[in-house]
């Protein structure tokens, strides 16, 4: 399972999973865009993204926010995370994401923001789990 959505009265809450931290982060990005649109997105352009933070939670928050800014500011809609490297000591991240122009799709739900509410990034039984509540 890449991710699952959990109940939260007002907003969208999900957990994303991965054997590595990188995969769990990539699946978090997919879950966020899946909130907005369920169907397939074409891969017509590639964008590079960087993020940093003071801990894994802040790094994940800032990474997802970079993608939201790309979406709102440049109309970029993510289809896939192509490459993702995390410097676990310095809490820095570099990624290449592929996607398409958002204008080509009728989106369902607007993600306003990532929140710190109930956020965690942890390793459990050899598997990484990221939990996020999105303000929608």
């Amino acid at each position: 399972m890449k991710y699952k959505f959990l109940a939260h009265t007002a907003d969208m809450k999900f957990q994303a999973f991965g054997k590595s931290l990188e995969v769990a982060f990539a699946n978090s990005a997919l879950a966020m865009f899946h909130t907005m649109y369920e169907k397939k997105i074409k891969k017509t352009k590639t964008v590079k993204v960087k993020a940093k933070g003071k801990d894994f939670e802040a790094l994940l928050y800032n990474f997802l926010e970079e993608l939201l800014v790309l979406f709102d500011g440049e109309g970029f809609f993510l289809s896939k995370v192509k490459r993702l490297n995390i410097d676990k000591k310095k809490f820095r991240l570099e990624a290449e994401v592929v996607g398409d122009n958002a204008e080509n799709y009728e989106m369902d739900i607007d993600v306003k923001a990532i929140t710190y509410h109930d956020i965690f990034v942890k390793k459990e039984k050899g598997k990484w789990i990221c939990q996020i509540v999105l303000d929608v």
Binding site: L6, A7, H8, T9, A10, M12, K13
Partner: peptide, 8 residues
């Protein structure tokens, strides 16, 4: 005010 989640 909501009572039920969007995911549900």
């Amino acid at each position: 005010g909501r009572v039920s989640s969007r995911s549900v």
